[in-house]
Design a protein around this nucleic acid. Structure first.
Length: 888
RNA sequence: GGGAGCAUAGCUCAGUUGGUUUAGAGCAUCUGCCUUACAAGCAGAGGGUCCGCGGUUCGAACCCGUGUGCUCCCA
């Protein structure tokens, strides 16, 4: 069979994915094996695959494939999130393109468009995950708005409400006065606007200013009046306080005093708070809790009155006292002359600021207080905090424990209502008089309402809440609801798969999602949802910027897979991504992955080329035994190391280790050592053992690069099973002596090659090698490897220096290279002196330690022992070098 | 404003409870090679004040303090 020059991934990848699917390797059913469960962080149903998904899902696939090969029942559950805000925004945009305004549609009409859209475009991302080789159990695909799931979300809302964990409360929202609807933050577009900054003076209680006529008397600033600056003068009618920085010397004497709001003469307090910046405006801030996010916070802190001066349509309300029923911008125009007439205006400045506009109607958004639904978090947080602090749930890396603790200890209540239609509709009903009830159906609600209300209402009179629940209010149920943990409580699958094993996610959603899943797990299953949480980093571009649409720096992942192959992409993203660290994505890592594929492919080609030349030989038996023993030991050692790394979630490091085992140890050393000469036969034992090693290497690498490893595994020899499900064999204990021998051999070869290089001996020119060693026997075992690797014609053993040769020292052994080449004794001497200096300095540092009484008294005996060994080794090396120098 | 974290080779990062040969890897760089698996390759080499300062210790990249610079999360 003819193998292509380079590895061509595309046809091979689709072939194997289809094969694995047809064999149902990814599908899992409860059985007697130990389960290993991972639930996918459900991507947005509208999403397309980006680098973040690629990283996250590659990691999950590595964990799942390894578990499967370890004999566990591996179950990886796929699915998507309805992503209320993002999806609704996309549907609205799609409708707009077709010339349909959301406001012209009924809720049901809008939702039917949304479902249509979801069925058409939703879940593309799941198809894309197949391209990456993800071994998900597709029969279990879930969606957060599946009928059962939807029901469970509503039931959880009702349950938490009944338990007293859900309540209604006020919150600042973005209000669109034209559409008369609340907007999510994402629907507000900030634009730079040329505004005016008005400086307005307020009379201070007990001063000489007449709030109704400032112009009449001589006034002293900050005694008779205080000046504030604002871009929204119409809101002064809602002022509840004036705030100054406590360190501001201009106002210290005014703390706790009162001032009067112009035009309406409301008495308001002057309060100190760090929130106010000293150098903006006059350093005095008017506080209007009903109409500004930050002022509302201040209002809460100081228990200020909330005076809502605006109606739903942007006109002034009765609470404003003046201009009732007139539009906010009209009032802004009118109020200035009114203030001027009474002498309140000090000056008016030009000012540029950011103003929020409605994405839908392009009118200025009004921050406004509104009744929203909240989850009280304190009780839910306690068990969720404990389970992480006491390591019932392990975070990787552990540094996120601190962050988690800090947040959970200062947790704030969760606002769960969203002014959207796409999502789980809040199961609350309102009667015209404001009485409300939480219930599954209108029929149940009307009964509840009539119990509470003064008059009796009919079912037609009550109206369901228009809002939907926050997306996270459904995804916090994900780890158990994908097994129908709520819709079918205590079922067999839930018992078998839950708690799941590992959650792989990004640290930026530790609070949005991870913490809340832990809470929901404890509340509804009385168990943690997962045992380990692996936090990935954020994938950034080469310059360290976040990937974003506007920067256009997100690579086209499917294009990259086409170009480099999925294995190469998986390699590239994993090779430098330790847990919790951001990844700077660079296409050169993908190239490295592709080159690695190619290296594997070529190693395969080499080995396949021997197939027709297998023979029983005695030739070089001893030498080849050394190569076999050494590589087998090395393979076992690395397998043990890799297993330990993966257990500790050090995935990147494990991959690097395997990469180096294959590229360096297997290809560069082992294969070169056993490679027969041109058209020479290969020993049958060597051949079959080499095939066996190659198989084991493919098995070790398979979780990281599933496609090429499966392909090579089958090309090595006819196989009765697939690598994908081949079980790892237990590893024999290892003989470290042979590893030391191998290291010495590598070092000798490298040093001799270096000497050849430096002395400009051409690769093709042979040398005669003389070895002065106390260990002749051990050199016999590696003699033929050495001969081949340094291109020696002959090897001699000697007990003294050989004149007119190039001298090389490795450890305690001396090597003399005899070549047809003029010797550069000066260079040789310089090199030896450099070595000598290094050794002498090293010895000096060791002697300094050993000469320190306190070190000898305090250090552990094994540490002292080690220092003594360093000393004797260094002394021996120095002696060897000095001897070489003398003979020059 | 509140909190968390990072700083080691040109770049990206390891360095596992302070001692394992005066700090390791990959990429990049330099030198020599088209050697019958692979130039997407082979063989070799060079490159570090472990951010600055102070402290603890027989011993610090690692622990403590402090300064500087950067990043992220929440508001």
């Amino acid at each position: 069979m003819e193998l292509s020059k380079n590895y061509l991934p595309t046809p091979i990848e689709s072939k194997w994915y289809e094969h694995w699917l047809s064999k149902k390797y990814f599908s899992s059913k409860p059985d007697e094996r130990e389960p290993y469960t991972v639930v996918i962080p459900p991507p947005n149903v509208t999403g397309v695959l980006h680098m973040g998904h690629c990283l996250n899902n590659t990691i999950q696939d590595i964990l799942i494939r390894r578990a499967r090969m370890q004999g566990k029942n591996a179950c990886w559950v796929p699915g998507t999130d309805h992503a209320s805000i993002a999806t609704e925004a996309k549907v609205v945009a799609m409708l707009r393109e077709r010339g349909i305004a959301k406001s012209s549609l009924s809720r049901d009409e809008f939702l039917s468009y949304a479902w249509e859209w979801k069925d058409k475009y939703g879940g593309i991302i799941l198809q894309q995950l197949r391209k990456m080789g993800c071994s998900l159990d597709w029969d279990r695909t879930s969606f957060t708005m599946d009928p059962d799931y939807y029901d469970s979300v509503i039931n959880v809302f009702i349950d938490l409400y009944k338990k007293g964990h859900i309540y209604r409360g006020k919150r600042m929202i973005n209000w669109d006065v034209k559409a008369q609807t609340a907007l999510s933050d994402e629907e507000v577009i900030y634009k730079e606007v040329q505004s005016k900054l008005y400086y307005i003076r307020y009379a201070i209680e007990g001063g000489n200013a007449d709030n109704n006529n400032f112009g009449t008397t001589e006034l002293t600033p900050n005694k008779d009046y205080i000046t504030i600056a604002t871009v929204r003068p119409e809101t002064i009618l809602g002022d509840a306080a004036i705030c100054v920085n406590p360190t501001d010397e201009r106002y210290i004497h005014l703390h706790g005093k009162y001032a009067y709001v112009p035009l309406i003469n409301r008495k308001i307090k002057i309060i100190p708070d760090e929130y106010v910046t000293l150098d903006f405006g006059t350093g005095a801030l008017k506080v209007t809790p009903a109409h500004d996010m930050n002022d509302y916070q201040l209002g809460n802190k100081y228990n200020l009155e909330v005076i809502d001066t605006m109606n739903d349509d942007g006109t002034m309300s009765e609470a404003a006292q003046l201009y009732i029923g007139e539009d906010r911008f009209e009032v802004r125009k009118k109020i200035i002359p009114a203030l001027e007439a009474k002498g309140h205006i000090v000056k008016i400045e030009e000012y540029t600021n950011q103003v929020g506009f409605s994405e839908r109607t392009d009118v200025v958004v009004e921050p406004r207080l509104s009744l929203q639904w909240w989850v009280s978090m304190k009780n839910l947080a306690t068990p969720a905090l404990d389970s992480v602090l006491n390591d019932d749930i392990h975070f990787h890396p552990a540094k996120f424990k601190n962050l988690y603790r800090h947040w959970m200890e200062n947790i704030k209540d969760w606002c769960i209502s969203r002014q959207l239609w796409w999502g789980h509709r809040i199961p609350a009903w309102y009667a015209p008089d404001g009485t409300y009830a939480v219930a599954k159906t209108a029929a149940e609600a009307v009964i509840e309402i009539n119990k509470k209300a003064a008059t009796s209402f009919s079912i037609e009179q009550i109206r369901q809440d228009d809002d939907c629940l926050d997306t996270w209010f459904s995804s916090w149920l994900w780890p158990f609801e994908v097994f129908k943990g709520l819709s079918n409580p205590g079922n067999e699958e839930l018992k078998y798969y839950y708690p799941t094993n590992t959650l792989v996610t990004a640290p930026e959603i530790i609070f949005f999602w991870v913490a809340r899943m832990i809470m929901a797990g404890h509340e509804y299953q009385h168990q943690k949802p997962f045992k380990d949480v692996y936090f990935t980093g954020i994938v950034r571009d080469k310059q360290g910027r976040k990937m974003s649409k506007s920067l256009g720096n997100s690579p086209d992942l499917l294009g990259l897979i086409d170009q480099y192959g999925a294995d190469a992409v998986r390699f590239g993203i994993m090779i430098a991504s330790p847990a919790g660290n951001d990844i700077l994505f660079d296409e050169s890592a993908l190239e490295q992955g592709r080159n690695f594929n190619n290296k594997l492919w070529n190693a395969l080609k080499l080995v396949k080329g021997w197939e027709d030349r297998i023979a029983v030989t005695t030739h070089n038996n001893q030498t080849n035994n050394f190569a076999l023993d050494w590589f087998e030991t090395r393979l076992n050692q690395v397998s043990i190391d890799v297993d330990a790394m993966l257990t500790q979630f050090r995935l990147s490091e494990a991959l690097k280790t395997i990469y180096s085992l294959i590229w360096d140890d297997f290809c560069s050393w082992y294969l070169e050592w056993i490679k027969p000469g041109f058209e020479q036969p290969i020993d049958t034992e060597i051949y079959h053992k080499t095939i066996g090693y190659f198989e084991k290497l493919m098995q070790l690498l398979h979780p990281f690069m599933p496609f090429i490893t499966e392909e090579i595994y089958h090309l090595l020899k006819p196989q009765s099973e697939d690598l994908c499900v081949k079980q790892y064999a237990p590893i024999a204990s290892i003989n470290t002596e042979i590893l030391t021998g191998g290291e010495l051999l590598k070092q000798v070869i490298s040093s001799l090659r270096d000497a050849r290089n430096k002395n400009q001996i051409k690769p093709k020119d042979t040398i005669k090698l003389h070895i002065n060693t106390a260990n002749v026997v051990s050199y016999h075992a590696i003699e033929s490897i050495l001969t081949k690797q340094v291109n020696a014609a002959e090897i001699f053993y000697t007990t003294s220096s050989v004149p007119n040769t190039i001298m090389v020292n490795v450890e305690k052994d001396q090597f003399f290279i005899e070549a047809e080449k003029q010797l550069d004794t000066a260079a040789m001497k310089a090199s030896l002196i450099k070595d000598l200096t290094y050794e002498q300095n090293f010895l000096a540092s060791v002697m300094k330690k050993l000469g320190n009484d306190k070190f000898v008294q305090n250090a552990k005996p094994e540490v002292i022992e080690l220092e003594r060994k360093k000393q004797s080794d260094a002394e021996a090396r120095i002696a060897t070098i000095e001897e070489s120098l003398k003979s020059l």
